[in-house]
Simulated scan of single mutants.
Amino acid sequence: MVLVIQLILLLSVLVSVTVCSDVFKLVNSSVKLVMQKKVEKFYDIGWIFNTENNIVRYNGNPPSKVFGSYKDKVEFNEETYSLTLKNVQKNDSGIYEAKAIDEQTVTVATYQLYVLDLVEKPVLSDSLQQSNDTCNVTLTCEAQKLSVTSHCYNNNCDLRKKKTSGDMFLSLSLHVSNSFIICNHSNPLSWKNTIMEMKHVKQLCPDKGDENGSGLNMADTKTVLLLTGISTIIIIIFFIIICCQRKRRTKVNCQNKKNDASSDVFNMVYEEIEPMNKGGNKAQSENHAAADSVYCTVGMAAQACSKDASTVSTANPGSKNQRAERNCESVDQTIFVTVNKARKPVYKA
């Protein structure tokens, strides 16, 4: 029975010594280490680095004693017995222990300190290898001497996440999805990533089944846009020329019609012949002649046509008009003759 109790006490001591807490801190930061067990009485208490380097000692009577190079680097609390490390660097990583000495030495705190740098932003790149029947794109993620790759064959990419580690905390991973490619570099205190869109890979390696050429690269796209713009400008100029020609043609036709109308006006001769009554006298009233009129058109030459009143008669307008037409066969212009008549007007052509 006594042996069992001794074994239990020994295991409890070993467990208290081996169990420690992990602490992660960035370079140039500070960390505070506190007591993990309650300290009731002691003759001496102190902190030790990596089991052999004394940092501070305190026997209950101030001031506490700080050793060597730790004088300007640590602060010891004489009431709580905590230890604060300032401006830690990577070489400060290690095991920190607090020991209380009474009838026996007891470890009252144990810490594993990891001092880490901020991670760097990873570099994500692609390389194309194309042959007659295949198109292969290799994706590479790199950071701090770490590298991870993934491959795409004919626009089909490996969608699995790949990861590699430089040590127990630093890691680099490459995740490929249908929309994005993510290269992530991380440690327990920081992480950074680089993202690439999947459409960039599809442009490098277009789908063979795409008959519409959706995999055109940026240079081809710019060429198509340039040709489209030039074609549009040419079409606009062409329509402007056609509109100007139609406008000019319409203006010429209107001018020709106007000239023809003016020529017809100048080729018209109006002549008024006053009718004679039975006694051979003129009409009694000009108002009477203006009221009722007879128009006779003679198509003979003006030089051969007589304007004598004997060629037109009101008694027998039909026969007189026929003789007037025979006398004026050579007339090229149109002559309008007005014959005044006392009664109903008669029109002859």
Rank of each mutant, 00 (worst) to 15 (best):
I273N: 08
N178V: 08
A289R: 09
K163G: 10
D210P: 02
T138A: 03
G215F: 11
D92Q: 00
V19A: 02
Q333A: 13
E40W: 05
T80H: 02
V66N: 02
V31S: 01
Y114M: 04
T223Q: 12
N316S: 12
T149F: 02
K90T: 13
A289P: 00
V265L: 04
V34D: 01
D72F: 05
C328K: 07
S12M: 04
S82Q: 07
A291C: 03
G166K: 13
D117G: 09
A219P: 00
S69K: 12
I235G: 06
M268L: 15
A283F: 07
H175W: 03
A324G: 09
I242K: 05
K37P: 00
E40F: 11
V224A: 07
H151I: 00
D126N: 14
N77F: 03
E40T: 15
G279I: 08
T164L: 06
F239K: 04
Q36K: 09
K307Y: 09
M35D: 00
T105R: 13
H288I: 14
S190V: 09
Q104W: 11
C296T: 11
F49E: 05
I45H: 01
K344P: 01
D44L: 15
K222G: 01
E272Q: 06
L189M: 14
Q284F: 12
I234V: 12
C296Y: 09
S29M: 04
S21L: 12
L83M: 08
L3N: 15
F42M: 08
R160T: 14
N267D: 12
D207W: 05
L83Y: 04
P62Y: 05
L226D: 13
Y153C: 00
V346I: 07
T250Y: 10
S306I: 07
D72P: 01
D72S: 11
T314L: 09
F239A: 05
S29G: 08
D102V: 08
G46N: 04
Y114V: 06
Q89N: 10
K282D: 02
V15E: 02
K32A: 15
K278D: 13
N136S: 08
S171D: 11
Y295H: 10
L159G: 06
A283L: 05
K208F: 10
K161E: 09
D22C: 13
R57V: 03
F76H: 04
D292V: 14
N154Y: 09
L7A: 10
L113I: 13
M196G: 03
E97F: 01
Y43K: 15
M168V: 14
F266A: 15
T228G: 13
S21K: 15
A289F: 05
V13M: 10
L227T: 10
K258I: 01
N253K: 12
F67I: 02
D167F: 06
S306Q: 02
I235N: 02
A261S: 06
N253C: 06
Y43A: 13
I8A: 11
M1S: 15
I234Q: 04
I101M: 11
G215T: 10
R246Q: 12
D292R: 06
V27G: 03
K65A: 02
R160P: 01
K251F: 10
D126Y: 12
G229W: 01
G68Q: 02
I95P: 01
S310D: 11
G299S: 14
P188N: 13
A324S: 04
L159Y: 03
A342P: 00
T51Y: 14
G213A: 10
K222W: 08
F239V: 07
K73A: 08
S93M: 10
D117Y: 11
